[in-house]
C-alpha cells in the first residue's frame, strides 16, 4: 500500500482525537487492582479485628500506600505518553517514601532500646513483602495491559512506575490484614514489597510494553 493511500485511509472520517485516553484506560485497572488485593487479603488472611482500626497502625499503612499510589499513578500516566514532564510525579514518589522513612526512623528512635528489634522485624517480616507482592500481581497485570495499549516510549521506566503503582495498590488491600503496628516496620517491609513489585515491572517492561 502506498503511503498516500494509508494517509487517506487513516484520515477518512477520523473525527476528533479521543480524550483522556490515559485516564480512561488506567483508572479502571487501578480500581480492579485495589479490589483484587482487598479480596485476596480478606479471603486469604482475614480482616484485622475491628478494634485495630481504632489504632493508627492500619491508617498509617493506608495513607502511605495511597500517597505512593498518587505519585506512582501520576508517573505511570505520564510515562504512558511519548513525551511528558516527569519531575513532579517523581518528586511526589520521593516525598511519600521520604516521609514514611522519616516517620519510621523517628518512631524507632523513640522506642525503648529493648523493643527496637521487635519494631523493626515484628512477627511477619519474612512473609510481609512476599504477601504484598502477591496481592499486587493482579494490579500489575492490569496496569501493564493498560499501558501496552498506550504509548510508553521508555519501557523500562514505564514498567518500573507501573510496578510501583501496582505495589501501592496491593499494599492498600494488605493494610486491612497486616497485623504489625510499628511505623518502622511499614517503612521497611511494606516499602520492600512495593519495591519488589516495581522491580518485576521493570523487568517485564521491555518485554511486555511493545506497541
Amino acid at each position: 500500500m502506498h503511503t498516500e493511500q494509508l494517509i487517506d485511509m487513516l484520515a477518512r472520517d477520523a473525527g476528533p482525537a479521543p480524550r483522556a485516553v490515559v485516564a480512561r484506560r488506567l483508572l479502571p485497572v487501578m480500581l480492579m487492582g485495589v479490589l483484587c488485593s482487598v479480596v485476596l487479603a480478606l479471603w486469604l488472611i482475614g480482616p484485622l479485628p475491628a478494634e485495630s482500626f481504632q489504632t493508627p497502625a492500619p491508617w498509617v499503612k493506608l495513607a502511605y500506600a495511597a500517597a505512593l499510589a498518587v505519585g506512582a499513578g501520576l508517573l505511570t500516566s505520564r510515562l504512558a505518553r511519548p513525551v511528558a514532564e516527569l519531575f513532579t510525579p517523581r518528586l511526589l514518589v520521593g516525598l511519600a517514601v521520604g516521609a514514611m522513612a522519616l516517620i519510621g526512623a523517628a518512631t524507632l528512635f523513640l522506642t525503648p532500646a529493648q523493643e527496637r528489634v521487635d519494631a523493626v522485624f515484628g512477627q511477619t517480616w519474612l512473609t510481609c513483602p512476599w504477601t504484598l507482592l502477591g496481592f499486587s500481581l493482579p494490579a500489575l497485570a492490569g496496569i501493564l495491559w493498560a499501558m501496552r495499549g498506550l504509548a510508553p516510549t521508555r519501557p523500562r521506566q514505564a514498567g518500573w512506575a507501573g510496578g510501583l503503582l501496582a505495589g501501592a495498590l496491593g499494599a492498600m488491600g494488605y493494610a486491612l490484614s497486616c497485623p504489625e503496628s510499628s511505623p518502622t516496620f511499614v517503612a521497611i517491609w511494606h516499602t520492600a514489597g512495593m519495591a519488589m513489585t516495581a522491580y518485576i515491572g521493570r523487568l517485564l517492561g521491555p518485554i511486555v510494553l511493545r506497541w
Binding site: 500500500m1 503511503t3 494509508l6 494517509i7 487513516l10 477520523a14 482525537a17 479521543p18 480524550r19 483522556a20 485516553v21 490515559v22 504512558a80 505518553r81 511519548p82 513525551v83 511528558a84 514532564e85 498506550l150 504509548a151 506497541w211
Partner: peptide, 18 residues
C-alpha cells in the same frame, strides 16, 4: 507507515503542553 499508524492510534496521548 508503521509510525503514521501509531500516530493515528495514539493521537489521544498527545499533550498540547509539548
Amino acid at each position: 507507515q508503521e509510525t503514521l499508524l501509531a500516530v493515528h492510534l495514539q493521537r489521544g496521548t498527545y499533550d498540547p503542553a509539548f
